[in-house]
């Protein structure tokens, strides 16, 4: 029997529940240094596996292909390019956004990986695949060692 015709769930015999639990996550061994470099120095780092010839970005603790510990930290140029993008018109709750948001998968030269982040200072119709972008960070005193220390990426000059 379906109760779908009851549009107001409060009219069903029910017990209201919630499954929210709160969490505190560590950023981990590689994350600790990766985010500290962004917070303190505004720099991006990857880690290199000499055996597999790959530099992972963002930096990781171990190589997924051979499980070697990655001890070689390599500075990565913050200028990347747009691999692909999308435009969001609704937020997480399904509400219409006042201003559409551009979200892009950004790759960086010479490394394996990249970042998904927001694009700013650019209109949706101006975004191009392959476009070179650079990060805009929060003012140093406001950074807290988080992915949101990067406000967005903008078209590079």
């Amino acid at each position: 029997m379906s109760l779908e015709k009851i549009r107001d769930p409060e009219r069903m015999r029910r017990w209201p529940g919630h499954m929210e639990t709160d969490y505190v996550y560590t950023v981990g061994l590689a994350g600790e240094r990766f985010f500290r470099e962004i917070k303190d120095n505004g720099k991006f780092y990857g880690t290199r596996c000499e055996k597999c010839g790959i530099t992972y970005f963002p930096a990781r603790t171990f190589c997924e292909r051979c499980l070697s510990e990655l001890k070689e930290w390599v500075e990565v140029s913050p200028r990347g390019y747009v691999e692909m993008y999308t435009i969001a018109y609704m937020d997480l709750e399904g509400n219409k956004l006042e201003k559409p948001e551009i979200w892009a998968f950004i790759r960086f030269e010479g490394v394996f990986g990249g970042l998904v982040h927001k694009l700013g200072e650019v209109k949706p119709e101006e975004v191009k695949i392959g476009m070179v972008v650079e990060p805009v960070l929060k003012p140093k005193e406001q950074r807290e060692g988080s992915i949101t220390d990067i406000l967005y990426f903008k078209p590079a000059k």
Binding site: T26, G28, F62
Partner: peptide, 18 residues
């Protein structure tokens, strides 16, 4: 309260087993 992420913990045990 280990500092390692979940996957870093798994890696440590996995590496030792191999």
């Amino acid at each position: 309260r280990m500092q390692e992420t979940s996957r870093e913990l798994a890696w440590e045990a996995t590496k030792m087993a191999l």
